[in-house]
């Protein structure tokens, strides 16, 4: 188990999982200290398969290569001004996803057999969208467990 920590976000990354914490592509700045929060809006990608190099903020390119056993998580930060809005009213990291919450039609680019979901929330005065995708809707029960297990190791400051 390795822990990635930067920009006020921390994630325990178990064996077999890959992850990357970065600043959103349109807001990227010169990073003097990647561990310090407040450099820009953050995006976190984690997957139980090899992440491709080029990915948009919601990881569409990763979903294109995701196998039926795959689980992909994207945490996308929004402007802190959104914290008071109705969309982000849920407080805390949603780490209790339910298998039936996944929907094959919830993906930005629907892929054969895959399913996804989005949860908007706020934590530590920051607004986020959690985008989760699984490689097989048919096997959503074990894959949801795997997604929840990695979300338990996610922290936001």
């Amino acid at each position: 188990m390795h822990r990635l920590s930067a920009y006020g976000i921390g994630l325990d990354v178990p064996t077999g999982w890959e992850a990357e914490l970065s600043l959103q592509q349109n807001l990227k700045k010169t990073v003097a200290d990647p561990a310090a929060p407040g450099d820009g809006l953050v995006v976190l990608h984690a997957a139980n398969f090899w992440l491709p190099n080029e990915r948009d903020d919601y990881g569409s390119e990763a979903l294109e290569i995701m196998a039926p056993t795959g689980v992909f998580i994207a945490l996308v930060e929004f402007d802190p001004g959104a914290v008071g809005s109705l969309l982000f009213e849920h407080h805390g990291i949603p780490a209790d996803l339910q298998p039936d919450d996944f929907d094959p039609n919830a993906l930005r680019r629907p892929m054969r057999g895959q399913a996804g979901l989005q949860r908007f929330f706020h934590a530590a005065g920051r607004a986020f969208c959690l985008h989760a995708a699984i490689g097989s809707y048919k096997h959503r029960h074990p894959l949801t467990q795997e997604a929840n297990s990695i979300l338990l190791g996610l922290t936001i400051e």
Binding site: T15, W17, E18, A19, L21, S22, F49
Partner: peptide, 17 residues
């Protein structure tokens, strides 16, 4: 575990894959 050439902290999975 390291930093990508763009400066992003990253973990690359080599084992368990």
């Amino acid at each position: 575990v390291g930093v990508s050439p763009g400066g992003s902290p990253t973990k690359i999975s080599v084992t368990g894959v």
